[in-house]
């Protein structure tokens, strides 16, 4: 999309990224084109600083069909879905829902980007646990996450403290009807 001098060439908007963006916006059912960048969402977003991009900027990328950049932004994975953007937007745009759509679509189309890999890992491990047990077992979830993200020593003390207060049971609680749970996963799309 960028010319050699670094300018974004809009008249060559490739149909594929545009379609993806249009579809994501449509499925989110949010009136994204109404955004006039007042920055209300930006000011209230808890992760905007950490992500280096504000919600309305993210929407702008989608609106212009600049998909690659949207997918590569950290906001896609740092968004916690707190909903502050949505309730403060004068145009009633819940950007968190748009972000959910973009994420889901990127998984569906296998166009997953690499920013904040560990948060995606966290979500995947979380769901894997539910698929296996029907409920989340915090101890093994945390351990698996730390191991796989090679973050072996962080929160070790916290984990210890919680363990000794019996807040991290050794064994998982399990749902009896795990077959129903597995079916539920197999019917829905899951990555």
């Amino acid at each position: 999309m960028k010319t050699t001098s670094g300018i974004t060439d809009l008249s060559q908007r490739r149909p594929d990224p545009l379609d993806f963006c249009t579809l994501a916006i449509q499925q989110s059912r949010q009136p994204v084109s109404r955004c006039y960048h007042c920055q209300r969402c930006a000011g209230g977003c808890p992760v905007a600083e950490a992500a280096g991009i504000t919600p309305e900027r993210f929407l702008r990328l989608l609106h212009l069909g600049l998909l690659d950049e949207a997918l590569e932004s950290s906001l896609l994975w740092l968004c916690v879905g707190c909903g502050a953007c949505g309730i403060r937007c004068p145009n009633d745009i819940s950007t968190d829902r748009v972000i959910d759509e973009v994420r889901a679509l990127s998984i569906e189309r296998k166009q997953i980007a690499s920013a904040v890999k560990d948060q995606r890992l966290f979500h995947r491990l979380f769901l894997r646990q539910i698929r296996l047990f029907g409920r989340v077992h915090e101890l093994s979830l945390a351990m698996a996450l730390k191991l796989l993200s090679k973050n072996w020593f962080s929160d070790l003390l916290l984990g210890q403290k919680m363990f000794f207060k019996r807040k991290l049971p050794l064994l998982p609680h399990r749902v009896k009807d795990r077959r129903a749970i597995r079916e539920l996963f197999d019917k829905g799309s899951d990555r």
Partner: peptide, 8 residues
């Protein structure tokens, strides 16, 4: 769940 799949 909602981050990865609306259906699930």
């Amino acid at each position: 769940a909602h981050s990865l799949s609306k259906d699930i």
